[in-house]
Write a protein that binds this DNA or RNA. Structure first.
Lengths: 336, 336
DNA sequence: TTGTAAGCGTTATCAT
DNA sequence: ATGATAACGCTTACAA
């Protein structure tokens, strides 16, 4: 199909009997044109179903007011942030173009595509590229990395270590001492959370009851972890801090199968405040990474570079928020 | 920030000492230019970090090869389809532009934006606009509606009624007769699935054991449904067909609390083959809506209109696929 | 094989 | 208040 020739400013101008410059002014709302011509132009435009050609406008403007957002579209947490970014960008006069990372479109491809669309800045959600690669991109275009520790480019993330700390604090406040940790593997995020756990335990003088079992961010790792943790009946943890919601849900299930009550005998916490955690029958105590705030800071960081000429990299580390739900409770008083 | 002047074909042409027309040909890979100039041009382009200005190219071409996809980014099922659409579109020489529906950007706004980007066709994932509104859009631009029954515009969806049928068939094959249905409310989808259940029961001559309890697509509705269904001990269903995975998971949980074993005493099925259903400890028998196939058909429908000049509306109704997992089993032999 | 020049639909400057 | 006219960066006949 040949895409139909669309109505242009010239068409309107001809029809009304004015110049297209005038039509342009009217559509951009600049003062000048008389109320009467304005009215006639608008009328004809409506009649012809005219829609301004953004492509042409941008070509001439050399500005696009586009912010590219690279995201793993399958990631619910990303989705939540994207939603807020769209709103935030609109408020400050920008529009978001999504660049979905998929099995067929790697990170580098996506960034290239975003740049092809003439995005003036790019926001990368959970980028996995190397620090060097990101630095190189950052030299070419205003770049904001979200959810990851990195220097030299703008960064926005939640403080995972601190998130784990407040979780442990919460449990200690409930009287728990034997608090175990189910890890999230050896990636950057898993490591940060693990470190946060250890630091918090240390701060409470609980070094001697630190207990760590290896996990992988999925529910699959939970059953064996539970077997491991419950093995020595006299030395059971009274609480388990999982590295994320998904593995926490796995724990919930495994414990239930073992007939261990939550939070009666063991308290459980997750991380992410995902949809899963909010489900009524799961009702998991977890940590929110403040997706809305991260989204708005990321957009603001990009816009600052674009509109206010900021050139030094800023790093925004958000304080995560503990969301107390039903899987944590006071430690059983009659512990052996 | 003034966006830096970028390097253009003219820059390359000047530097190499040729015309920009030649540079253009080289970048489009059209035959003509000599191998030698090609090489020089490419070298200079690389050196200058030249990137073709798609905006300018499109302006002159009057084709964009862009397909707009409107989606609820929070919907995991949409996300899965989008992923496949991106790949499918790339294969046939198109690119996907995502238009996320959010609280601040309604369906109509999103479609407008997509059109502003000069998308040549739009694919609407789960549109909620009226049939008339969709028809009107369809008259302006090639339009494919996904996941919804509609006439007059291209449509792609899975046959919900049939999906329920195969589910019931599966259960009947396992010896079940008292098969109940937990509905998904009174929307179009919930109604289709409900109808499919009734039809299948009828086909098996099980009209007299049809039993329907009202649900709402969330896990919240499950507990009361379970109370209701188990009330009369002598007349319990041996299987419950839920309208979607989420409410099925609610059933699983409620039954477990009641000490009813699944699938030992009661079999449970969901619908959607969501991530939830695939979780190891849930392992829910469910129905896949074939997201990949829907995605590819939707893109193909759009491209047919664009490239092959098809003008009559086509409707593609996919056969859903039963995914048997661990929550369904043979009916207990010692039923009262 | 290579160059020239006329668009494409805007915006913006400078006249009128 | 309105109109010419020159960009913007590319594609594409048509010419050389």
């Amino acid at each position: 199909m040949t895409v139909g020739k669309s109505v242009t400013m010239q068409d309107i101008a001809d029809r009304v009997g004015v110049s297209k410059a005038l039509v342009s002014m009217i559509f951009r709302g600049v003062p000048g044109p008389s109320a009467e011509t304005k009215e006639r132009v608008l009328a004809v435009a409506a009649e012809l179903d005219y829609r301004p050609n953004r492509t042409a406008a941008l070509l001439s403007l050399r500005r696009t007011h586009l912010i590219g957002v690279m995201t793993d579209i399958r990631n619910a947490f990303h989705a939540e942030m994207v939603e807020h970014m769209v709103a935030e960008a609109a408020q400050v006069g920008y529009e978001v173009v999504l660049g979905p990372v998929t099995p067929t479109h790697a990170e580098a491809d996506v960034i290239e595509t975003l740049l092809d669309f003439r995005c003036e800045a790019v926001v990368l959600l959970g980028p996995e590229a190397s620090d060097d690669a990101l630095g190189a991109w950052g030299a070419r275009v205003p770049l904001v990395a979200v959810g990851r520790r990195i220097k030299g480019v703008d960064a926005v993330r939640a403080d995972d270590s601190r998130g784990m700390s407040v979780t442990v604090d919460h449990l200690v406040g409930l009287g728990h001492r034997r608090i175990a940790h189910l890890t999230g593997g050896s990636g950057a995020i898993g490591r940060d959370r693990h470190a946060g756990y250890r630091r918090a335990m240390h701060r409470h003088g609980l070094d001697d009851v630190i207990r760590v079992v290896e996990g992988d961010f999925t529910e699959q790792c939970a059953p064996s972890a539970v077997v491991d943790l419950l093995a020595d009946a006299g030395n059971r943890p009274t609480a388990i801090v999982a590295a994320n919601d998904r593995s926490a849900v796995g724990l919930l299930d495994a414990l239930q199968r073992q007939g261990v009550s939550v939070p009666g005998e063991i308290s459980i916490t997750g991380y992410d405040d995902s949809t899963l955690a909010r489900m009524a029958h799961i009702d998991l105590t977890t940590v929110s990474q403040e997706p809305k705030e991260q989204a708005s800071r990321a957009i603001r960081a990009a816009v600052e570079r674009l509109d206010s000429g900021r050139t030094d990299a800023v790093s925004s580390v958000l304080r995560p928020r503990l969301v107390v739900r039903g899987t944590t409770g006071p430690v059983a008083t009659h512990v052996v």
